[in-house]
Design a protein around this nucleic acid. Sequence first.
DNA 1: GTTAACAATGGACCATTGTCAATGGTTTGA
DNA 2: TCAAACCATTGACAATGGTCCATTGTTAAC
Lengths: 113, 113
Amino acid sequence: MARRSGLSRDTIRFYERNGLIGSTEGPDRTNSYRDYHEAVFDRLQMIDEAQKAGFTISELLFFLRQIEGPSPEDLDVEEFLDQKIREVEANIERAKRFLKTLRATRQALSGTS
Amino acid sequence: MARRSGLSRDTIRFYERNGLIGSTEGPDRTNSYRDYHEAVFDRLQMIDEAQKAGFTISELLFFLRQIEGPSPEDLDVEEFLDQKIREVEANIERAKRFLKTLRATRQALSGTS
DNA sequence: GTTAACAATGGACCATTGTCAATGGTTTGA
DNA sequence: TCAAACCATTGACAATGGTCCATTGTTAAC
């Protein structure tokens, strides 16, 4: 799973410790090797994206719990999502602005040298 | 400066310790109060943006040094900038993708409840 | 049946990016 | 002149997101 997902083994176990993913006992009960559902792969991909988009572990936890099984907290989650959506949008705008600065600097340099 | 920039005093001093900004001795030499050039304000703004765009302190250091005073390392800096520009672009794309996920989830929820 | 290569666990450790607290000096206004 | 409100310095502390290590168990190839 580590190789497939591009994450390190330790990172995956770190996520597992934090409840972001689950593992099952492997088919061979005589050892303690982990086994992962296929869905865990997708989830890891999304965790990685979310993380890079600025989600903290606990935000992810909250979010993922909802995706998997809706609960009475739905309203809170909607607010949370709206909030997060605005945040990510703001991040994108900020990044775009900063990109302009970078490009301008890059231009200035190539003119100079 | 802290009030104007929206950063905490400690954060500003943290940046100063790390060489991202400079301060001068104040006009009154009998105390040890700092004084900041007007340019420091702008720089703080940009540091904040850069930081949120994923630059580390040391990357910023490298970058800012160049902006202020071009050096023989210009070529390295061009490479560095090109690299960083690609990174930020990739971040933006990733964030956009993730935004879709968020919005889809949001939609699903509001349909449900 | 031994060895290399993998797996699990627990806990220590790490870098990054700040934040806080203790201590002590300075300024200002009443 | 005294207090409230600043400022500086130093070094400890903290949260986050991992990473590493020592120990021990398992598997597989030879």
